[in-house]
């Protein structure tokens, strides 16, 4: 990400009182101190640069997903583009079916919690051509809805189930969003920053 094209900036992670100021959605007992963090770097972060292969891939991506791209960036040879949730399936299908990009494998799907919004990140990869790309979708935290990509990649099934369980992200169109890794009756979304840390129930 270069400095100018971050749509919503990440929260300034200042000294320890940063996390304690947010009201957690789950009641945090006295032992739920957030972990102490050191203050961030004072120096400017070096800009992320794409090498030549990354530039080529980014050019292809921008061309085929032209009307839907909100922002772009990348590092080394992995470019990223950001789209809206409504256009995600279309962009993903074009990435998968394009003959030069050939991004046939959904390598990773994750959700990052930026407190006011959640960001779904899709890492795509081509085992044959060797191209890699990242798709990002930002959704507001109070209405986290993203269309499901299970129609395009079968790997999305379990990824989305896990992200739904850990972050509360809704994937519309997913056939079966039942709990996968947490035990039944687990309350809350443990991946979110508002989930109390350092807290455990003596079983």
């Amino acid at each position: 990400m270069t400095e100018q094209d971050k749509p919503v900036s990440e929260p300034e992670e200042s000294a320890p009182e940063g996390a304690a100021d947010e009201t957690p959605q789950v009641e945090a007992p006295a032992s739920a101190r957030p972990a102490r963090r050191a203050p961030p770097h004072e120096e400017e972060a070096p800009p992320e640069v794409l090498n030549s292969r990354g530039q080529t891939t980014l050019g292809l991506l921008m061309r085929i997903a032209d009307p839907y791209v909100l922002a772009h960036g990348g590092r080394d040879d992995i470019p990223w583009i950001e789209t809206r949730a409504q256009s995600l399936i279309e962009v993903a299908r074009r990435c998968r079916d394009h003959r030069d990009l050939d991004l046939k494998m959904l390598h990773c799907l994750l959700v990052v919690d930026y407190t006011e919004h959640l960001q779904a990140v899709y890492v795509l990869l081509s085992p044959v051509k060797g191209t890699r790309a990242i798709l990002k979708v930002n959704v507001p935290a109070d209405e986290p809805k993203v269309p499901s990509l299970t129609g395009l990649w079968r790997a999305a099934d379990w990824y989305e189930r896990e992200m739904h369980e850990l972050f509360g992200m809704e994937f519309e169109g997913h056939p079966n969003l039942s709990p996968l890794i947490l035990y039944e009756g687990f309350e809350g979304y443990p991946g979110l920053k508002s989930f109390p840390f350092n807290d455990y129930n003596e079983f």
Binding site: E10, E13, A35, A38, R75, H107, V112, V123
Partner: peptide, 29 residues
């Protein structure tokens, strides 16, 4: 203390591709 940024790196585990997506906010965690 890596600077703010994101990176995706994957390597060859005996079982397959292990990938790490790291988002850093400039602190030491």
């Amino acid at each position: 203390r890596p600077p703010k940024g994101e990176v995706y790196v994957h390597g060859e585990n005996p079982r397959g591709d292990i990938g790490v997506y790291l988002v850093s906010d400039g602190t030491d965690k």
